[in-house]
């Protein structure tokens, strides 16, 4: 039997009713292994106006580079204190902030190594299908050989890289639309 996936529709402006119960802006707890990072930013539209009804979902490996999922059969340790999932809403100014641990590197296809990264899904009114993007970390040596970054035009790669501010909070914005600063989104 062969079927086709159900058509995606927008979450609309009222998704909070159904989805807020699973919000999680602290992905790690006190016992989670790894280097703590805080990531913060803002979601804006094609006019630069804030998007105050977006929601992010984050998925990542643990500090050892292991996903808490049966498909990950790497010989690396799971962390019982880390699941790797966050659901992060934006506030009235379109801002979000979450804390986690920096993931380890994970294998890519064909024997490559992927630099530490977070997978981010973006949901909002006006997004008929959610967007998929990634957060990489500024100054990470493995970025130079990351197989997915290599597919991204050089001048756009910086949109995928979170940079620490003076307080050490990694800044990373989601620009839904724009000629020069639009965030790179992936065809998944």
């Amino acid at each position: 039997m062969s079927l086709y996936a159900t058509t995606s529709h927008t979450v609309g402006p009222y998704y909070h009713i159904g989805l807020t119960w699973l919000n999680r802006e602290a992905l790690a707890n006190a016992a989670t292994l790894g280097e703590r990072v805080a990531i913060s930013g803002q979601v804006v539209d094609g006019n630069g106006d804030v998007v105050n009804d977006a929601m992010l979902e984050v998925w990542q490996a643990n500090a050892a580079g292991k996903y808490d999922h049966p498909e990950d059969d790497q010989d690396k340790a799971l962390d019982p204190n880390f699941e790797g999932f966050g659901r992060v809403p934006v506030d009235a100014e379109g801002r979000f902030r979450f804390t986690t641990v920096k993931p380890g590197s994970v294998p890519g296809l064909a024997g490559t190594t992927q630099a530490p990264h977070l997978v981010v899904l973006v949901f909002a009114r006006g997004l008929v299908k959610h967007l998929l993007t990634r957060i990489y970390f500024d100054g990470e040596a493995l970025n130079a050989d990351d197989p997915l970054l290599a597919r991204v035009p050089k001048e756009r790669r910086s949109t995928l890289i979170a940079k620490p501010d003076a307080d050490g909070v990694h800044q990373w914005n989601v620009v839904l639309q724009g000629t020069d600063k639009e965030t790179v989104f992936f065809d998944y």
Partner: peptide, 22 residues
């Protein structure tokens, strides 16, 4: 104003995507 205007970048499905929250 919320749809990307730049081309999407093709994503080969790696371990990062064939896993997910359970």
């Amino acid at each position: 104003l919320r749809s990307p205007s730049q081309p999407l970048v093709f994503l080969p499905h790696s371990l990062s995507e064939i896993t997910g929250p359970t």
